[in-house]
Design a protein around this nucleic acid. Sequence first.
RNA 1: GGUGAGGUGGCCGAGCGGCUGAAGGCGCUCCCCUGCUAAGGGAGUAUACGUUAAUCGCGUAUCGAGGGUUCGAAUCCCUCCCUCACCGCCA
Length: 426
Amino acid sequence: MLDPKRLRNELDSVAAALAKKGYTLDTAKFIELEGQRKAAQQAAEQAQAERNSYAKSMGKLMAEARAAGDDIEPLKQRGEALKALTVAAEQALDSVQAELDALLAEIPNTPDESVPAGASEEDNQELRRWGSPRQFEFSAADHVDLGEALGGLDFDRGVKIAGSRFAVMRGQVARLHRALIQFMLDQHTLHNGYTELNVPYIVNRESLLGTGQLPKFEADLFKLQDEREFYLIPTAEVPVTNLFRDEIVAELPQKFVCHSPCFRSEAGSYGRDTRGMIRQHQFEKVEMVQFVHPAQAADALEELTRHAEALLEQLELPYRTMLLCSGDTGFSAAKTYDLEVWLPSQQTYREISSCSHFGDFQARRLGARYRDESSGKPAYLHTINGSGLAVGRTLVAVLENYQQADGSVAVPTVLQPYMGGVSQLG
RNA sequence: GGUGAGGUGGCCGAGCGGCUGAAGGCGCUCCCCUGCUAAGGGAGUAUACGUUAAUCGCGUAUCGAGGGUUCGAAUCCCUCCCUCACCGCCA
């Protein structure tokens, strides 16, 4: 959520920033609602103040009336009249406030100044490349053919068991998938200073509002049929970032890494990536989340992005780092780097990690704060997160980049210890 | 799922219709005293929102959440959530 004060005081510049993201802020509507809110709030608070002070004096008034032998009823009636006024004024305030809150909850974060203006992914900036795509002396297969030939990927049975966009992994491929997870977690916990978490994969509505998936993106989520408003997590970002919801965090920074399954309904992506494991309803991801002091946030995003890049380098997978343009940056994010890995079958780079800086946007929704050292007051902390990495897509990249002429697949050196020394699949 | 006990400030804990944003204690901050340390004395110490250029100030809200009773609710009533204990069930 944006700071309501900032909206009030710098409405035009906020609107201009949001326009870069492709969001049109209805400034006239905001000004009108805000004006109504102010008037309604003052009226409601004044009515309440009168009611309070009258109620406070009531004990004495009643004692005096009784002593004088007067009727007490008129005193009570005045109280009731004040109550009626207060209730009406509060209802007016509540309805304006609800409208304003609904508007606020749907306004995206403003992009950071360093984010290039642009409308779509066409305008993203390539910052750097690592490695060079391998030249194949045979025609490279895609991961579907490779995986099926190895008996390690079974899409037909995934469809039978659940439906489209589900798959079964088997044998050494399933093990390779697990090895990737262990490798990533070990790197982050042993070398990068992250604390491992294991979290609920079902979350409540408040958690999704906190990170920004709700109220706007309900269609992308799987909701459980239960009166408790449970949702399957679309990313570990949700439970992990909500760790400090409604808390004042004693120490910053705090860095967490968490492996989890992710569930996405992918509504609106019907024709895209229908083949293979690129876009599934269920996939696994190792996610890094940092809670940082605002002054450290920019550096922390660079650091976290490097942590994701280093994994690809150790796996010897060619990749490039993209700075997303304003229009391609997500709802809650102020700035995002995407890492894209080379996929030989597609002859292109595909997203394998997304690392974002949210400023205080999520923290404000969450009520996640730290105590500012100079003022001594609670202030919103900043959140950073990124995939390190998307495991399913990493598996795809390993299969395709490490394939050999005979259909076997070499195991990346760093994964071999996690594979019991196995150096080749098939 | 059943029964019982609870949810009050950074923490512990009192209050059980008006004088309570909330006693008392701990912790923390500042001051005094003390050769140092320990002990002692005094003062202060919630958050959000609004108003304001900002602060002081002022106003409103907040005693798990929501609703109700009442002129007035931390206190009475209802619903829900959560915690703890025991029983049942269970990986």
